[in-house]
Simulated scan of single mutants.
Amino acid sequence: METQTSSLKEKWEVLKQLKPQLRIRNAADELNVTEVELLALNCGENVTRLKPEFTAILAEVEALGKVMALTRNDDVVHERKGVYLNPSLENPHVGLFVGEDIDLRIFFASWGSAFAVVENAEEKPRKSLQFFAKDGEAIHKIYLTPLSNDAVFDQIVEKYKSDDQSSIIITEPKAALPAEKADSEIDVASFQEGWRNLTDTHHFFGLLRKNGLTRTQALRLAPEGNYAVKVSNNALREVVTTAAERETPIMVFVGNPGMIQIHTGPVKKLMDHGDWFNVLDPDFNLHVKESSIADSWIVRKPSEDGTVTALECFDKKGNQIAQLFGKRKPGIPELEEWRAIVQEVENKLKLNN
């Protein structure tokens, strides 16, 4: 095993020489390993393996002050600066941080490992706490900013440092997506009735599970009307661009199996870079690989506060990679300005389902 890790480290060093700008996630893809396997190679150098006491570590990050929270999947990166406020970490399955800036939904079942990383930078070392799934994929990263408390970071590292600082890490195979049932096996009438009778959008997931539906299948089998409307895959660009032009505050949800991260507020500075469509605001950055969006749907769900309207984007495997709403809170109807934007995009980009 030690020989294997030495060989992998040598291959990574060669790759870094050839492609010095290559990020670790992309390097892992090129070397056919997981990101956490590459990261662990530097344990004892600039990487410290932490004890897998995830809730305890997260309970201490508020004291870091203003940081940058990063959550991503293969195709969308969500970066939000702020302070980790109002934690709810008692439930072993689901945790929360609910602040105006850092807003997270945490699903601990897939969490597998944690590390502290200190990367060399021109001005000062870049410090981060990084959390990975059991399959080696990155779940969430917390980067210090110039306004963060470095001493607290050092205390967290010392307190939660693992006795095991080897470069070897065992990962589990990536969980396969559940097979989609044939439409003929679904009680479509019952599902559609459940959708029409929703009073809380959070109950939609339970409705899918009860009826044995994947999310994209559910959208295909939505009730008649405008409950789910398929649109072309430049809908996200259109929605974000129009929201920026009209200064309409939106909510942007991006996640992976272990985390959903939410931005609530305006978006302003938009920019293209290669395949990526970007929001580059001071406290919020979003990077979307547009070519990976395989399906886009405008989705409407009834609630006690009226209809809630979303744009949902999926990759070719049916994974939801981003979800957008107008800014709203429970008890408050969604913004009419948001509804107008979505309706205009629907009128412009609607496809024949």
Rank of each mutant, 00 (worst) to 15 (best):
Ala40Cys: 00
Glu344Arg: 11
Leu41Asn: 00
Gln155Ile: 12
Ala176Ile: 13
Ile156Pro: 02
Val342His: 12
Gly136Phe: 07
His287Leu: 04
Glu344Met: 09
Ala189Val: 15
Leu207Glu: 00
Leu207Gly: 03
Asn278Glu: 02
Pro92His: 06
Val157Arg: 11
Glu53Lys: 09
Lys124Met: 00
Phe204Gly: 04
Ile250Ala: 02
Ser296Leu: 01
Tyr227Ala: 15
Leu280Gln: 15
Asp163Thr: 14
Glu312Ile: 00
Gln192Phe: 10
Ile170Asn: 13
Asp74Asn: 15
Lys329Ala: 05
Asp135His: 05
Lys289Met: 09
His203Thr: 14
Asn26Ile: 05
Leu89Asp: 13
Ile298Gly: 01
Ile168Thr: 02
Val239Arg: 06
Phe97His: 14
Ser7Ala: 06
Asn91Asp: 15
Asp315Lys: 11
Gln261Trp: 08
Lys174Tyr: 09
Lys11Tyr: 09
Gly212Glu: 09
Pro257Gln: 04
Glu122Pro: 01
Gly326Asn: 05
Lys210Val: 07
Leu129Ala: 03
Val36Arg: 05
Pro178Glu: 01
Leu198Arg: 07
Gln4Leu: 11
Trp338Asn: 06
Ala28Phe: 03
Ser303Lys: 08
Val61Glu: 14
Phe191Ile: 11
Leu96Asn: 11
Asp163Arg: 12
Leu213Gln: 01
Val229Glu: 15
Leu89Trp: 12
Arg246Lys: 13
Leu335Gln: 10
Gln165Met: 01
Phe253Pro: 10
Gln155Lys: 14
Arg246Thr: 06
Phe191Asp: 13
Glu90Met: 12
Phe107Gln: 07
Asn42Cys: 02
Phe132Val: 01
Pro178Asn: 04
Cys43Trp: 00
Leu236Tyr: 03
Ala179Trp: 03
Gln320Ser: 09
Pro257Cys: 06
Ser128Leu: 05
Ser296His: 02
Met259Trp: 03
Ile106Ala: 00
Leu198Trp: 07
Ser148Val: 09
Val254Tyr: 06
Ser113His: 01
Ser162Val: 00
Asn32Ile: 11
Lys51Ala: 02
Val345Ala: 10
Val47Asp: 04
Val33Thr: 15
Asn73Ala: 05
Asn278Tyr: 01
Pro20Asn: 04
His287Gly: 06
Thr71Asn: 07
Glu336Met: 13
Glu247Gln: 14
Asn347Glu: 13
Ala114Asp: 00
Gly225Ile: 12
Glu60Ala: 10
Ser7Cys: 05
Glu290Cys: 08
Ser303Val: 10
His287Pro: 07
Leu280Lys: 15
Ala322Glu: 05
Pro178Met: 04
Ile186Asn: 14
Tyr84Trp: 04
Cys43Val: 01
Arg237Leu: 07
Ile142Asn: 08
Asp315Leu: 08
Ile260Leu: 06
Lys161Glu: 10
Asn120Leu: 06
Thr309Asp: 13
Asp101Ser: 04
Leu41Val: 02
Glu119Ser: 11
Asp103Met: 01
Phe277Arg: 05
Gln343Asp: 14
Leu22Thr: 11
Leu85Ala: 13
Lys81Thr: 13
